[in-house]
Design a binder for these strands. Structure first.
Length: 866
RNA sequence: GCCCCCUUGGCGGAACUGGUAGACGCAUGGGACUUAAAAUCCCAAGUCCGAAAGGACGUCCCGGUUCGAGUCCGGGAGGGGGCACCA
């Protein structure tokens, strides 16, 4: 018999054309069907699709195709996160406009995605750099502005000296810019913010309801929002007539229960009081300047010594007028958190302890560990280290012998009764700084007028489009350098005014793009009919690196857009799945150059350079990166093995949330399976009954056993896909293929064998379809069907055919397996026990002793205790 | 420093609420087909002892709970991640 090898490339192109011509992936709102919005995080158009993208989209495609087969109306769109700095850098390097570069990249990447056979609705494609998109973002900004969710303020901000722009807190990683890696500087600038803190509590509380989010992402957001509970109150100050000092000193603390241990107060260098006092005291002014200039880099902060400058002022303990402590300006107090002022209770805080030791301040222990034998005698100073935990309060007058938590409440009650302070919740989360001094982003649609102030651009004048004729020859914002763009008349008074030249953080673009897919032609940012139907996203898939940044911003946007009437959904992503990265071995030549995988081959188990044969050092398995050259080009893989093989390989073996190691032998294993299925159908086909043939009355044991294997596999693969256990689902597909092969080999003459094999092949085709859609179509057609696999419902199973007539029950003696018995699944315990005690291995192990106890776990195990 | 997660053969990994540890794949060894190779098919395989039957040991380490622990509890080691002068 002639055995053609499966021609992946030609076959895949054929089916892609058929799908496209039939527009099968066009999403439609359908009455009477459940909907499924499946979304993968859209890519930045860097120029090439890499394997990481491929894995991400393949996963989404499995879900989308599965849901489609399950009868859902599916929305599975794709677009481009197209604004951003790399385009400006490219423009500078090649003299090409960022838009030209970006659009070329989009075209190239779209073609690369095309060969993957993804079930995407390209009619909904969006690119965030397109005025059709960003004009709506500008409209949203204006609505946020009106609703008080966008505002401008002067603040100390993170300045990235490489990008020549400011960054949001979320974009500063270890004191460095998230993209440039340059140490971030502090600058005081007037910038635009989104009031994300207005939703701090809601963003935190709602995390609990996100049952289909990974725990670690929820935890990371929880930590990022950083809710803390404490008190805020004001100390009276003595020793200065300065008006700022007359106001007293407002502090925030999560441990007001330690107030009697106070030995100093400290304020930030940029605290208004510090600034006011510096006016009168040149030495203090110098100190403040020094602190302001000191590095904020993490490494420096860790080693930096705590320093302080005694202002000469005294703060008075409101509960003990005789208890007065010095007020310092200190370098470790931050203006941005709480009130920018603290009280120092050294026995209970590491930093305060260090500070107190340095300046010879008293260290009075006020909290003893709960398990202290004699709390009164506990002394942190004597011990040489602070005790920061909670416990029993000592040396604290009316708080004595209370637990820390009780004392906390009591002291706050006291503050409130005396009108000195209040309970207060403080969040670590800051408002989202969205101004960027860049060209390639969405312009902030406001105009600055000397007479009228900040004037919103009227909506009918949107978009505020980026000018095309810009130059990148000098540092700074090209929009600001542009000869005419910013000079406009005030929309309100008509006098000469200036456009805002800042553009929005690109994370704004991605904070709402998923709403635009619902109707990318809507005249307003969203079409409510469409968003009400499709949102929330049922399954979102992307990298863990966005756990805080993008995912938090999108959650904020859903709230802000709901408040301004653009949406009616608080949580945009019902299900979230974070997939692992794609890794590969690294290779180095004898002279220390990194080598690409295709420059290396294995000979006799040793890695050598292809061609020359020079020895190669095999390094660690690491995330694919250009710098280490351990990359695989998805295009080449598809060219050689086809998209199905690549998809199958990426979904098998490794659970999707973990990092996967790309191996040559792995991809070849997947390729063998493709060929094997193809051959299986080829060989069996002549012996099979026609499509749709009625089941015969009689089945041989072998045929029945194949049928059971089929129905069990359908059940297992279905639940596997539901739970993102793609690797185990695929393992079951391997097993079923083996069963079919064994049956086909044994001949198809037995009663019902032909029917069982056809049934098995058709089911298997349906099961592999989400993973290998082209092969599935081809096999489906080969099996005699005229319908498209993509429009075929998901295989079903008969529960009765998933249970066995006889099960194997292991028998343990004292917890060690000594034998097994075959028994009907519904056998009663007495029968099982009797049979178990007769087993040869069991008898041997019991050595003639009588059982003390026999434990029978139905359908599981028998344990005999002697 | 604080918080979270992980650790199973030569490798990737399976094992539902405590119930046969190692499914499936990769690599390996043996065999079949072939002049030969490739491709394909079949078989073997946790480690140790044993010709075999069988036995002992075995899920990072130590201890505990249980008839029974990869799974639960306590302590420790190693790896990964998040946050971090956050008051």
């Amino acid at each position: 018999m002639s055995q053609d090898r499966y021609n992946a490339k030609a076959t895949e192109q054929k089916w892609q054309k058929i799908w496209n011509n039939a527009a099968v992936f066009r999403a439609r709102m359908e009455e009477g069907k459940p909907k499924a919005y499946v979304l993968e995080m859209f890519p930045y158009p860097s120029g090439r699709i890499h394997v990481g993208h491929t894995r991400n989209y393949a996963m989404g495609d499995v879900v989308a195709r599965y849901k489609r087969a399950q009868g859902y109306a599916v929305l599975h769109p794709m677009g481009w996160d197209a604004f951003g700095l790399p385009a400006e850098n490219a423009a500078r390097e090649r003299g090409e406009h960022p838009g030209t570069w970006t659009r070329q990249n989009i075209e190239a990447m779209k073609a690369q995605l095309g060969v993957m056979g993804l079930s995407l609705d390209w009619s909904r494609e969006i690119a965030t750099c397109d005025p059709d998109y960003y004009q709506h973002q500008q409209a949203l900004f204006l609505d946020f502005l009106e609703a008080g969710l966008a505002y401008r303020k002067e603040a100390t901000v993170n300045w990235d000296p490489v990008e020549n722009s400011v960054l949001a807190n979320e974009q500063v990683v270890d004191g460095k810019g998230w993209r440039s890696g340059a140490p971030v500087e502090k600058r005081k600038l007037t910038q635009w913010f989104f009031r994300i803190t207005a939703y701090a509590d809601d963003l935190l509380e709602s995390l609990e309801g996100l049952a289909r989010w990974p725990d670690n992402v929820r935890l990371m957001q929880e930590n990022w929002i950083g809710k803390s509970y404490g008190a805020q109150w004001t100390f009276a100050l003595e020793g200065s007539g300065n008006p700022e000092a007359q106001k007293g000193l407002e502090v925030y603390s999560t441990r007001p229960d330690t107030i009697f241990g106070m030995s100093f107060c400290a304020i930030a260098a940029d605290h208004p009081l510090a600034q006011a006092l510096a006016q009168e005291n040149p030495q203090l002014a110098d100190y403040c300047r020094e602190v302001a200039q000191s590095s904020t880099m993490q490494a420096d902060l860790d080693t930096a010594e705590k320093t302080g400058f005694d202002t000469g002022l005294k703060a008075v303990n409101p509960f003990d007028p005789a208890h007065k402590v010095p007020v310092f300006v200190a370098n470790y107090v931050l203006m941005e958190y709480g009130t920018g002022a603290i009280f120092g209770s050294p026995a209970g805080d590491e930093r305060d302890f260090e500070f107190a030791r340095k300046y010879g301040l008293p260290i009075k222990t006020v909290v003893a560990p709960e398990d202290s034998a004699n709390p009164e005698s506990f002394d942190a100073d004597a011990k040489g280290e602070p005790f920061a935990g909670k416990g029993v309060v000592i040396n604290s007058e009316f708080l004595n012998s209370l637990t820390s938590d009780e004392a906390l409440e009591k002291v706050i009650d006291e503050f409130e009764t005396r009108g000195l302070g209040t309970r207060k919740v403080v969040y670590r989360l800051r408002d989202w700084l969205i101004s960027r001094q860049r060209y390639w982003g969405c312009p902030i649609p406001v105009i600055h007028c000397e007479a009228c102030g900040v004037v919103p651009v009227p909506k009918d004048q949107l978009p505020v489009a980026l000018p095309e004729d810009v130059t990148f020859d000098k540092p700074g914002n090209p929009l600001d350098h542009h000869a005419s763009w910013k000079y406009v008349d005030c929309p309100k008074c008509g006098k000469a005014a200036r456009r805002e030249t800042d553009t929005m953080d690109t994370f704004v673009d991605s904070a709402w793009y998923f709403t635009r897919y619902c109707d990318n032609t809507a005249e307003t940012p969203t079409n409510r009919e469409a968003t009400d139907y499709w949102l929330p996203v049922d399954q979102y898939i992307g990298g863990i690196e966005h756990a805080v940044l993008h995912l938090l911003y999108a959650r904020f946007f859903a709230r802000a857009m709901s408040k301004t009437g653009h949406l009616d959904v608080k949580e945009p992503f019902q299900g979230l799945f974070t997939q692992g990265m794609v890794c590969h071995e690294t290779y180095k030549s004898a002279d220390g150059r990194w080598l690409y995988p295709d420059e290396v081959e294995y000979k006799d188990g040793k890695a050598v350079e292809r061609g020359g044969g020079a020895p190669v050092t095999v390094g660690a398995v690491e995330k694919m990166s250009k710098s280490k050259r351990n990359t695989i080009d998805p295009e080449e893989i598809v060219e050689q093995y086809g998209a199905d093989t690549a998809r199958w390989f990426m979904m098998s073996d490794t659970p999707p949330e973990r990092d996967i190691e790309w191996t040559q032998s792995g991809i070849e294993g997947a390729w063998r399976y493709v060929q094997r299925l193809w051959r299986l159908v080829d060989e069996a086909l002549p012996h099979l009954p026609a499509t749709g043939a009625a089941p015969p009355d009689d089945f041989s044991d072998e045929a029945l056993s194949l049928r059971k294997a089929t129905h069990k596999t359908v059940k297992a693969v279905t639940t596997g896909i539901e739970h993102f256990h793609f690797n185990t689902a695929i393992a079951r597909c391997y097993e079923l293929a083996s069963e079919i092969g064994a049956r086909a080999h044994a001949g198809l003459d037995a009663p019902g064998a032909g029917f069982a094999v056809r049934e098995a092949l058709e089911a298997l085709t349906g099961l592999i379809n989400p993973f290998m859609p082209h092969l599935a179509e081809e096999i489906w057609q080969k099996l005699g069907h005229e319908t498209l696999m993509v429009e075929t419902p998901w295989p079903t199973f008969d529960e009765a055919l998933t249970v066995d007539d006889a099960i194997t029950l292991p028998i343990q003696v004292n917890g060690k397996k000594r034998g097994e018995i075959e028994i009907a699944p519904d056998a009663d315990n007495a029968t099982i026990e009797a049979l178990a005690l007769e087993d040869e291995g069991v008898k041997r192990a019991m050595g003639g002793k009588a059982p003390k106890k026999v434990i029978v776990v139905p359908k599981r195990i028998v344990n005999i205790v002697i």
